Computed example of a mutant assay.
Amino acid sequence: MAKLGDVSLHIEKESESHKVEATMYAVEKGEPFTDHVAKRPSEFSLSGYILSDNWEGDFKQLITMMEKGEITRYVGKMVAQDVIITDIQGEHGSEVKNGASLRISLRRIRFTQTAWIKSPPKTKPNVKPVTNSGKKMTVQKTPPKSSAVYHIIKKGDTYWGLSKKYGSSIQQLRSWNKWSDRSIPIGGKARVK
């Protein structure tokens, strides 16, 4: 018995994959040289069955988690924290009456710490205010209120997730907020509409 988020699974096989990406450059003689090695996220594969009276609802819940990019946890023979579902393949055959066989692929997600620091508030210099004595007063119209919507950034928020939640394009979110994809500050106030 294993659990992926809140869904119980009967897993027969678990496998994990750890990779690096290494650049290669050709040389005139001999082996190519490598000057950079970058770690790739760990990936996990599960194969087994989803068996219950409500297996169709559980299967739909897994698909919804995958489509939303929901970060979850897998606990079986191995434990995988902070993973997303990247692929689900289900097979519905006559050999399983109250469920289905399935294969699921997971990928570990890494969270970064922000280097963003809130600056102290600016102080205004002491300046005598300008008066309007002796001048004709004009009535000023109040500017229209902004219809902008803001969101306070929480751990795990991404432009992609905010785009799905609020319906704004990723490009528009980037132009409004001026943060790079990897340095969205937790606690920051992001314009989302």
Rank of each mutant, 00 (worst) to 15 (best):
K155A: 08
K155L: 15
S180D: 02
V139S: 05
V192H: 04
T138C: 06
S146G: 10
K145F: 13
Q140E: 11
R182P: 01
S183P: 12
H151Y: 03
S183N: 15
G187T: 14
W179C: 10
T142A: 01
P144Y: 08
R182Y: 05
V139A: 03
S163Y: 05
K136H: 08
Q140L: 13
I184T: 12
I184Q: 08
Y150L: 09
A190C: 08
V192I: 11
K141V: 11
T138N: 04
K178N: 14
S175R: 12
K178P: 05
R182E: 14
Y159M: 05
A148H: 04
H151F: 02
D181F: 14
L173R: 00
R174D: 04
H151S: 00
D181Y: 10
R191F: 01
Q171D: 13
G187V: 13
T142S: 08
M137S: 10
G161C: 08
K154R: 06
Q171V: 11
W176Q: 00
R182Q: 10
Q172D: 14
V139T: 09
G156A: 09
I184V: 08
S169P: 11
K155R: 15
S146C: 11
S183G: 09
K164D: 14
G188N: 01
K141N: 12
D157M: 10
Q172P: 05
K154D: 13
H151Q: 03
A190Y: 01
G187A: 04
S147A: 12
V192D: 02
Y166P: 01
D157G: 03
R174A: 09
Y150C: 07
K189P: 10
Q171N: 08
Y166I: 08
